[in-house]
Simulated assay, not measured.
Amino acid sequence: MSTRFRFTAPPSPRAATGRVAEVYGQLARDFGLRAPDTFVVLSSAPELLTGVWALMRESLIAGPGDRTGKELVALGVSLANRCPFCVDAHTMLLHATGDHALAERLARGERPADERHARVLEWGERSRVPGALDDGPYPFPRAHLPGYLGTALAFHFINRVVSALVGESLLPGGAQRLRPVRSLGGRALARTVRRTAAPGDALALLDRPEPGEAPAWAGGTPVGLAYAALLRAAMAGAGLLDTDDQDLVEEVLHDWDGSHPPLALTGFPDRRERPGARLALLAALAPYRITDEDVAAWRRPGHSDDSPVRLVAFDDSLVRLVAFGAFLAVDRLESTLGRAPGRSPARTPPGT
């Protein structure tokens, strides 16, 4: 699943060592791809890479619930967030589960024929709106909430990172839009996707949070510790903004109703005056709207030197700023989806 990157040049997976190499090893074993761009783009920040892999693995792959249902959640979230890369990826992964007819109905833009599948897909699509899922029952057993909700939150983060920093096309020339390519791609991943994965394996890659940091909705499963680890890693990016910019970004997220911003980006900070706040808010609300001009405006104040060392530092900082903005949106959703009383977007990672 090779595609181009936007704004950064991540380290080559062939050069990976330490925890990054271990993530790639688990990806190959449990996801069927050693180094998909979805994760390579985060590899300059190993704590972000391990956190998001752990959350995705422990929910989508090893968490409670049916894999087809969780793929439908990931697809619904990706549709709501307008992430064509992830929509195409999860259509292909539905082929890998063996649900070929379902995958093709969705590829044609049709509603699932099975009402249970339709409700799960709609649940994923509605999850972009804070509080929208608090009305009515879940479309899956309550015991499966950690798997389904963890998957939804993982992809609210992944969609935003991918839309900001990875190109739109899953395969060169948009080949994934061809039915034979979708089917063959899914079949190539089928053995891995249909294999049972042991919960908890990704936790060994993390700087483990305290059990009390895990959200209550995770029910003591590994999903909760993975979520807490990603929260810590992503919220550390707040330090890239000054206090005024942090306040502005968090105030906007606090009032966000889940809508996509208007074409004119009314109310967004001017890129010349507050480029960091603008980038963080775009990452949260409309990462597909980040432009070369937005990135260049943020780079100029502190990264005017074009030496290789400066460029590497800039890549790392941009990844961390995008992750911070993306996770503020996730945290806003989690505070309502998880029915966690009193939660609001945090300024700094817990325990620091």
Rank of each mutant, 00 (worst) to 15 (best):
A15L: 14
G25E: 13
D30K: 04
P36H: 09
E47D: 15
L48W: 01
G51A: 10
W53Y: 04
L55F: 08
R57P: 00
E58L: 04
E58I: 03
D66R: 10
E71T: 08
S78E: 05
N81G: 04
R82C: 06
P84N: 07
P84Y: 10
C86M: 09
D88G: 11
L93T: 14
R105Q: 15
A107W: 09
G109F: 10
E110L: 15
R111F: 06
R111S: 15
D114I: 01
A118K: 10
R119H: 14
G124K: 13
D134M: 12
D134I: 07
D134P: 00
A143Y: 08
L145W: 07
P146I: 13
P146K: 14
G147M: 08
Y148M: 02
A152G: 14
A152W: 06
L153I: 08
A154I: 02
H156Q: 14
S163E: 10
G173S: 05
Q176C: 04
R177Y: 02
L178M: 12
L178S: 09
R182S: 12
G185C: 10
G185L: 09
L189W: 03
R194F: 07
P199N: 12
P209N: 08
P211H: 11
A216V: 14
A216P: 06
W217E: 11
A218I: 09
G219E: 09
P222Q: 03
V223L: 12
A226S: 15
A234R: 04
M235V: 10
A236W: 01
L241G: 03
D242M: 06
L253D: 07
P262Q: 08
P269F: 01
R271N: 05
L281C: 03
L282A: 08
L285E: 11
I290Q: 10
D292K: 13
A297P: 12
G302I: 05
G302T: 08
S304H: 14
P308H: 05
P308C: 04
V309T: 11
V312K: 13
D315K: 06
S317E: 15
L318A: 07
V319P: 01
R339I: 02
P341F: 01
S344K: 15
P350L: 02
